Simulated scan of single mutants.
Amino acid sequence: MVKNRPGLSLQRNGTEQAGNKKRKNSIAGNNGFTFIEVMIATVVLGVGLLAIAGMQISAIKGNSRASDITKATALIEDKLSGYKGMAYDDIDDEQGVDGVFSWTTTVDSNSPVNGLKTITVKSSWSSGERTHSLSFATIVSK
């Protein structure tokens, strides 16, 4: 036993003894986290993880919608480029289905002026309970 301070003796195991009372030396006077602190940290972490999961679901839905719009755009552009290579008099209304996408071509003759045709291609598709559509238009001359 080594004398450390008056009235206290320092033991070899790192405890101080004052009379019959022993206390453990600690660096900051703190031995760790309490149970309530651990529970609060767990709740905060859980709430954060749930928020991230919600954002993931939203991102997946957004990516699916963007993919559908991209496919519909490619279909419409393909149809419009085909009309630009056709003879003026052969361009007429038509419709069809390509996978989950249905498309309709509407041709307005002499619009906006004589000798021009306005071609509008509209693509529609269903996603869940909602129906979506996208349309592009172009003008061709004789």
Rank of each mutant, 00 (worst) to 15 (best):
L8I: 05
S9L: 08
S9E: 07
S9R: 09
L10N: 04
L10W: 06
L10F: 05
G14N: 00
G14M: 00
G14I: 00
G14E: 01
T15M: 02
T15Q: 02
Q17K: 02
K21R: 12
K21C: 15
K21H: 15
K22D: 03
R23L: 07
R23N: 11
K24W: 14
K24N: 15
K24A: 15
N25L: 09
S26T: 14
A28S: 15
A28W: 13
G29V: 03
N30H: 11
N31A: 15
F33K: 10
T34L: 13
T34N: 14
F35Y: 15
I36N: 07
I36M: 13
E37P: 12
E37W: 14
M39I: 15
I40Y: 11
A41H: 11
A41G: 09
V43E: 00
V43C: 06
V43W: 03
V43R: 07
V44W: 10
V44K: 08
V44E: 06
L45M: 13
V47R: 09
V47M: 08
G48P: 01
L49M: 05
L49P: 10
L49E: 12
L49I: 06
L49N: 08
L50W: 05
A51L: 02
I52E: 04
I52G: 01
I52H: 00
I52D: 03
G54C: 05
M55W: 01
Q56P: 04
I57Q: 12
I57G: 12
I57E: 12
I57D: 10
I57T: 13
S58D: 08
A59V: 00
A59S: 02
A59K: 01
A59M: 02
I60D: 13
I60Q: 15
K61I: 10
K61E: 08
G62E: 03
G62R: 09
G62I: 04
N63W: 03
R65K: 15
A66K: 06
A66I: 05
A66L: 09
A66T: 10
A66Y: 11
I69C: 05
T70P: 07
T70F: 14
T70A: 15
K71G: 07
K71C: 04
K71E: 07
T73L: 01
A74T: 02
L75A: 00
I76S: 02
E77F: 01
E77A: 02
D78M: 09
K79M: 08
K79S: 10
L80Y: 04
S81A: 10
S81K: 13
A87L: 12
Y88K: 01
D89H: 03
D89Y: 12
D90A: 07
I91G: 04
I91L: 05
I91P: 07
D92T: 14
D92Y: 02
D93P: 05
E94I: 11
Q95G: 11
Q95S: 07
Q95E: 14
G96A: 05
G96F: 01
V97A: 06
V97K: 09
G99H: 06
G99C: 10
V100I: 13
S102K: 08
S102C: 13
T104C: 04
V107A: 03
S109I: 14
N110C: 07
S111T: 12
P112I: 01
V113D: 09
V113G: 07
V113I: 12
N114H: 09
N114K: 09
G115R: 00
G115T: 03
G115N: 05
L116S: 12
L116M: 09
L116D: 08
K117N: 08
T120G: 00
T120M: 01
T120W: 00
K122N: 11
K122F: 08
